[in-house]
Amino acid sequence: MILDIYKDSLEYSLQEGKTLLKLGVMMFFSFLILPIFLVLGYYYRVLDTATHGMINGDDKLPKFDDLTSMFVDGLKVFLVKFIYLLIPCIIFLASLIIGGQISGLNNNVGSGVMFVGIIISIILAILFYFLSIMAVSNMVANNGSIKDAFDYKSIWKIISNVGWLRYIGFYLGLIIIITVISIIVGIILALIWITLGISGAFVSAFGLNIGLIIGLLITISVYLFLISPYLTIFESRAIGLIYEPLDGDD
């Protein structure tokens, strides 16, 4: 089933080049902050399609329109993920502050408090991260209800039904696929530059430094406007398909 999800998601993400470019433009302007929420909003829409769809179905890519609604959806995704990671961050900071104060009296005890606090915060951050992924899916599957994103009992049960090891293995598989695709694309682009002599032409025309900068900018542009949006859609589609609502849920 997991391999089918990967296959479906890889093919699904290739449906429409214009959508990839639009999403890529939003990613490019993410330094302005507001476009980040549009990217998350489109992530929401892909999740929505996937959680209500089926593997190897005929689902289409969501339209890139109604930006106000997409912005609000993106804000919801950000809010849920932020709250889930807030507790580990608080514990991390608290351990540093308390440990630092104790160190003034006993350095060994203070260092121990900081070490234990950091370990606990890392473990909780990993746990809450995996919970947040399914929490967002549960919110999206239930018509964007933020309340359902914090229905911990249902979310825990959903993950348990999938199987924790299977769920973690699935996500690690996503990371591996994304990493491999990124590396392969980078190698292909480098080979194209070398084979066609384009990099050499840039160097001859503009000098070594400018030529390398131009080649690097073009490579980054290809990744930013095509590969990165493709991988974002791939990830959200796969996560939506692994989500299995509890009996009685829509």
Results as ranks from 00 to 15, higher is better:
149 A>N: 08
102 I>T: 13
169 G>A: 08
199 S>H: 11
102 I>D: 12
213 I>D: 14
158 I>V: 02
166 R>L: 02
113 V>R: 05
207 G>D: 07
180 V>T: 03
103 S>N: 14
145 S>V: 08
225 F>Q: 11
165 L>D: 06
119 I>S: 11
180 V>E: 08
134 M>E: 14
181 I>M: 02
128 F>T: 07
127 L>W: 14
106 N>T: 10
222 V>Y: 03
136 V>L: 12
211 G>L: 04
101 Q>M: 15
233 I>C: 09
156 W>E: 01
153 K>Q: 13
225 F>N: 02
93 L>H: 05
203 V>Q: 11
207 G>L: 10
169 G>N: 03
194 I>F: 09
108 N>M: 15
165 L>E: 03
235 E>D: 13
140 V>C: 08
232 T>M: 00
139 M>Y: 06
222 V>C: 05
217 L>E: 02
211 G>N: 07
161 N>H: 08
182 S>G: 03
151 D>H: 05
164 W>M: 09
120 I>W: 13
199 S>V: 12
189 L>T: 05
119 I>G: 11
109 V>C: 13
144 G>V: 10
213 I>T: 15
138 N>K: 03
225 F>K: 06
162 V>S: 02
189 L>N: 06
162 V>H: 03
173 G>R: 00
106 N>S: 15
118 I>R: 12
190 A>W: 10
214 I>V: 15
221 S>M: 12
140 V>S: 04
162 V>P: 06
140 V>A: 07
152 Y>T: 11
100 G>R: 14
227 I>G: 10
226 L>P: 02
189 L>S: 05
205 A>I: 01
211 G>M: 00
187 I>M: 08
203 V>Y: 09
226 L>Y: 11
230 Y>C: 02
200 G>P: 06
131 L>D: 05
190 A>F: 07
209 N>G: 01
218 I>V: 12
207 G>V: 08
239 I>D: 07
208 L>V: 13
127 L>N: 12
157 K>V: 05
213 I>K: 14
134 M>R: 08
124 L>T: 06
111 S>D: 15
212 L>D: 04
137 S>K: 10
228 S>N: 10
100 G>H: 15
147 K>S: 11
231 L>G: 01
186 G>V: 00
146 I>C: 05
216 L>A: 15
201 A>T: 06
231 L>N: 05
160 S>C: 03
226 L>H: 09
202 F>N: 07
234 F>L: 11
236 S>K: 02
167 Y>T: 00
182 S>D: 04
96 L>M: 15
181 I>K: 01
177 I>S: 00
193 W>P: 09
198 I>G: 04
146 I>G: 04
217 L>Y: 04
126 I>C: 13
183 I>S: 11
207 G>P: 05
143 N>T: 08
175 I>A: 04
143 N>Q: 13
120 I>Q: 13
214 I>W: 08
188 I>R: 07
163 G>I: 04
166 R>K: 08
137 S>M: 12
168 I>Q: 04
210 I>M: 15
176 I>W: 03
129 Y>G: 14
130 F>I: 07
206 F>V: 01
171 Y>T: 04
138 N>R: 07
122 I>A: 15
156 W>P: 00
198 I>N: 00
157 K>R: 03
140 V>Y: 00
133 I>A: 09
158 I>L: 02
212 L>M: 12
238 A>R: 00
110 G>F: 05
135 A>K: 03
205 A>W: 12
123 I>L: 14
212 L>E: 10
237 R>I: 02
145 S>E: 10
134 M>W: 02
